[in-house]
Design a binder for these strands. Structure first.
Lengths: 160, 160
DNA sequence: AAAATATGTCAACAAGGCTGACATATTTGA
DNA sequence: TCAAATATGTCAGCCTTGTTGACATATTTT
């Protein structure tokens, strides 16, 4: 038994076999997701360092560009972070001219968020390497396979 | 033009249209990945709170269970974090009896990492909801589609 | 015996989560 | 109309988890 080694330094029972086959759980896929996302975010991270921003800024820039005119509340819902966490990065993006706040046209309590030209350009710059990576990954698939990937990712997401 | 609102509070040019169609970049998929991963990690996060651990602990527990006997250096390579970041969480896991260190059988400088029974159980508990989520997402696909998802995720990952 | 390697540890710092409390402006509803 | 609810901003402070750089120890390699 290979647990001889374990007994050398302690009487605690250690487990020497991989977990892979337990309960029919797909550990491979769990892991694949981790690696894919780790590398997916590493591209923009490198770019962000230049501007002194982080991943949190990226998310804000992305969603404001996707949905110009969205409110702060919309953004909080999307990111699922607290007001204070958002406020910090949002303020920096507004102060440095990437995002612009406009008083709501109907409801003047709202602050509608819009990208500036600079903000649009940053969003594009960050999206390019991610898009390249996705295109490469999808290139191994036929159109049907690409739809399946979309279906899968939607199925992974909570519906609310 | 809807940029009238923007001009109200500043002379900075704002962009009012969504970025979606620019440069043929697949913003939908970029976003889907974010949402999928956000929700994928939310399940174990809730469980981890009970033990007072965080996402970093989860990763360590996962990989040590996947590859019992792996060295600290292996783990650093896998997680792509620094020695100090790992040391902190690893120490906590060792001290609270989830992971066990064994002096390397060939090279006594190494510390081989093994899960304890408690560590194996935690890994399973954390993997269960993730597995459920994946199973649900894959259930919409045929066997071929499931292979495509795997191919896609591998294509998203750096090969090194 | 010296150099390289694997690991651990210390101090310090930064990003980005969190909480709770409170202020302001504005809209809504009784 | 006036009180309550809402949208946002802000302050102070905390925690986790990432970072760097330096240095210590044990062990292996050359």
């Amino acid at each position: 038994m290979s647990s001889d080694q374990a007994r050398k330094t302690s009487e605690e029972k250690t487990v020497t076999g991989p977990i892979s086959d337990a309960e029919g759980i797909d550990f491979d896929l769990i892991e694949q997701l981790f690696f894919a996302y780790r590398d997916f975010t590493s591209d923009p991270d490198a770019i962000l360092e230049k501007s002194g921003f982080g991943r949190a800024h990226h998310r804000v820039v992305h969603f404001v560009n996707r949905q110009p005119g969205m409110t702060v509340a919309d953004l909080l819902d999307t990111l699922r972070i607290t007001k204070q966490s958002l406020a910090r990065v949002l303020k920096q993006l507004v102060d440095s001219g990437y995002i612009h706040q406009v008083v709501g046209p109907k409801d003047r309590r709202q602050r509608r968020l819009y990208p500036t030209l600079k903000g649009r350009e940053l969003a594009l710059e960050l999206a390019r390497p991610q898009s390249r990576r996705i295109a490469k990954a999808l290139s191994a698939l036929d159109p049907q396979g690409r739809d399946m990937v979309r279906t899968f990712l939607q199925g992974m997401t909570d519906t609310d």
